[in-house]
Simulated scan of single mutants.
Amino acid sequence: MQMRSDTWVVIPAFNEAPVIGGVVAGVRTLFPYVLVVDDASTDNTAALARAAGAYTATHPLNLGQGAALQTGFEAALARGARYVVTFDADGQHDPSDAAAMVDRAREEDLAFVLGSRFRDGAHAQVGSVKRAMLRLGALIARLRTGMALTDTHNGLRVIRADALAHVHLTHSRMAHASQIVSQLAACGLPGAEHPVTISYTDYSRAKGQPLLNSVNIAVDLALGGR
């Protein structure tokens, strides 16, 4: 915990009351500073996050995940974060993966470490349609940025403050994932992918709506993450 006191974990959340307390509690076993950005939830997501030990910021209107992340980035940097972790609110990420990614960034002097479901050692049960869209996204990202990525739509990321200063998200919804990759590539600082485990629960599958997500990824690719 003490080694990661320079790290803030940013969790964008919208109507995650059933799980947010457990997600925050799990993250706080390894990271002292957790910020949940409540994107105008209609349930008690923010109150439950605070009860579990998180700081919270709340949007008065639902603006989308990209906007929630940007709010979190600005807040974390203002509080002196050296590293910022992005972490999904639905419980599919493993806090130990996030800790390993921060430790790797520190040890290898990397400005960013991006989680991947497809690197050796990773584990995720991804449907065939979504897998195809994710691979297409990785191919397009490689052609556009020169970065040899395998998974451009993974919500688990570690970004160092100097790299995060180059990230300014204007795509509020799904296209923010490609925009983050493009802006990190443009900053010219070193980065890497890291294998992570994604645990798809009944809850996360219901929230994620896999077919709709595949459509959203297609829209993201068309927008180009600029």
Rank of each mutant, 00 (worst) to 15 (best):
L48I: 14
A105N: 02
F31M: 09
L139S: 14
Q92I: 05
G91Q: 03
A46P: 09
V19M: 07
D43E: 15
P60D: 07
G115P: 05
N62L: 10
A13C: 03
D103C: 02
G22Y: 02
F14W: 15
P18G: 14
L134T: 10
Q92N: 02
A76V: 01
T42Q: 15
V126F: 05
Q92T: 04
F31P: 15
A57F: 02
H59N: 13
H59Y: 12
M147E: 08
N15W: 10
P60Q: 02
S128I: 07
T145W: 12
A81V: 08
A100R: 11
A67P: 01
R119E: 11
V23R: 09
V113N: 07
G127Y: 01
V24T: 05
A13N: 00
A148F: 14
V36D: 04
G66A: 00
A25K: 14
A46I: 09
R142A: 11
L139D: 12
L77H: 06
M133N: 03
A78W: 00
A99T: 06
H123D: 09
V37L: 01
V126Y: 00
P95I: 14
P18A: 13
R144S: 12
L63C: 12
A141S: 11
A138K: 14
S41E: 13
R106M: 05
L143A: 13
T45S: 08
M147T: 08
R79F: 03
A105W: 14
A54F: 09
A25R: 14
D103K: 00
G121T: 08
R79D: 15
V113G: 06
D97K: 03
A67I: 03
V24Y: 09
A99D: 00
V126L: 00
A47V: 13
R142I: 03
I20H: 04
A89I: 06
D39A: 05
A99W: 10
A25C: 04
H123G: 00
G137F: 00
D38G: 08
M133P: 05
V34K: 11
R28I: 12
A25Y: 06
L48R: 12
Q125I: 06
L69K: 05
